[in-house]
């Protein structure tokens, strides 16, 4: 039993010795804005910068966007964006990468939108500061203007077709 623990400790030491770079890679995530206001249906562009602030290169990174409701409005992330997860190439020390998401505000309410970067392996997650998103509701459907146009245009064209056909018949 004691020898097994000793072997595990030796293995852990070996891994830390062989892969010190992985242990010291640190990633910071920043977002371009802290507050966005919009209306239901509006597309919001969320831009984020991922920086390797550590002294060694990172592995492949995964950036994921998340939306959290602050007033108990139901949030289905897939409705907000079809691609919440994006892959980033490995970053050298000091290198940065830009990630952006086009999200559609599908619900009215108050939300926090934030980006999370998942490094390879078992390192801790890096999270951006939240963007406070205030989405106002809006009535968008209105038959008032559409109905006259939807009726008048085909009628006018129908009359034109009738006139052309009648002219052709008379000519023939």
């Amino acid at each position: 039993m004691r020898s097994r623990i000793g072997t595990r400790l030796l293995l852990a030491l070996l891994v830390l010795t062989l892969f010190p770079a992985m242990a010291s890679a640190t990633v910071e995530v920043a977002v371009s804005e802290s507050r966005i206001t919009g209306t239901v249906g509006q597309y919001l562009n969320i831009r984020s910068t991922v920086t390797n602030t550590g002294s060694s290169p990172t592995g492949k990174l995964i950036a994921h966007l998340n939306v959290a409701s602050l007033n108990d409005v139901y949030v289905d992330l897939e409705d907000w964006t079809a691609a919440p997860t994006q892959s980033l190439p490995p970053l050298r020390p000091g290198e940065r990468a830009e990630v952006s998401w086009d999200v559609q505000a599908v619900n009215a309410g108050v939300f926090n939108v934030y980006a999370v970067v998942l490094p390879n392996g078992s390192e801790s997650l890096s999270v951006s500061p939240p963007i406070h998103v205030d989405v106002a509701g809006r009535r968008t459907l209105s038959a008032g203007g559409a109905l006259p146009i939807a009726v008048i245009v085909p009628i006018l064209l129908g009359l034109a077709v009738f006139a052309v056909r009648r002219r052709l018949r008379n000519t023939a």
């Binding site: 459907l141 559409a146 146009i149 052309v164």
Partner: peptide
């Protein structure tokens, strides 16, 4: 003219539905 008329009828139907139909669930104009 006939093709243009048919085209206008199609656009009329689509426009009216887009402006009035809740089921289409358009969130923004």
């Amino acid at each position: 003219p006939v093709l243009t008329f048919a085209y206008a009828v199609l656009l009329s139907v689509v426009t009216y539905l887009a402006a009035t139909n809740q089921i289409l669930n358009f969130l923004e104009q």
